Simulated assay, not measured.
Amino acid sequence: MPDDFAAIKARARVLPKGRCFEDFHHGQAFEHHWGRTLTEADSVLFTTLTLSYNPIYFNKESAHGAGHKDLIVHPNLVFLTVFGLSVEDLSESGGPFLGVENLTFHRPVLVGETIRARSHVRSARRSDSRPGAGIVGWHTEGLIDDEVVVDFLRTNFVRTSDAPAVL
């Protein structure tokens, strides 16, 4: 068995993930993969774990009483889901996250709706203070069908192609 393991390990190779700074340019568009149907289990668990006890997130009678057709998905779960959908295309290679600005929720998301994400590069420049890195900003939107339900601006350091693996 150890010889088999050694042979397998010898054939293994590291597959690079993510994009480098040079892979981004102003205006570039990304339609992020798959999307995600937000289930009642997702919503109730998130609400419980974050101690967000607004009954429109976990009590259908309260949601109906507030004028909603179904339970509302907690807005922070909507935001984090859209953010997560963008990671593979935008920031999977690492680099410090610099923040989110102008986070806007355009309408409540109902349990059972499927959200997808798209992003556009809004800025890309080399870092003055961090050699081997650039600063990239994206405008990301979360959509249900063709309706934007959440959007935000996000910024990260992104490693340049000639930089060490860790910033």
Score class of each variant (00 low, 15 high):
112 G>V: 06
146 D>Q: 14
134 G>N: 04
13 R>T: 12
61 E>W: 04
67 G>H: 06
151 D>S: 09
160 T>A: 05
163 A>G: 09
78 V>G: 00
163 A>Y: 06
157 F>N: 00
30 F>S: 08
4 D>T: 10
164 P>N: 05
3 D>F: 11
27 G>C: 09
74 H>T: 10
4 D>Q: 07
136 V>H: 00
88 E>D: 09
50 T>Q: 06
18 G>Q: 09
163 A>Q: 05
101 E>W: 11
31 E>Y: 11
19 R>E: 08
99 G>K: 04
149 V>L: 07
67 G>A: 06
134 G>Y: 02
87 V>W: 09
90 L>I: 13
34 W>H: 14
31 E>I: 15
112 G>C: 03
155 T>Y: 07
156 N>K: 03
163 A>H: 09
62 S>K: 11
22 E>S: 08
2 P>M: 11
104 T>C: 11
32 H>Y: 08
31 E>L: 14
69 K>Q: 15
79 F>N: 01
5 F>I: 15
61 E>D: 14
94 G>D: 02
20 C>E: 03
39 T>M: 07
95 G>R: 00
166 V>F: 13
86 S>E: 02
134 G>H: 02
35 G>S: 10
29 A>V: 11
66 A>Y: 08
96 P>W: 07
68 H>M: 13
16 P>A: 12
55 P>S: 09
110 L>T: 11
71 L>R: 02
128 D>P: 02
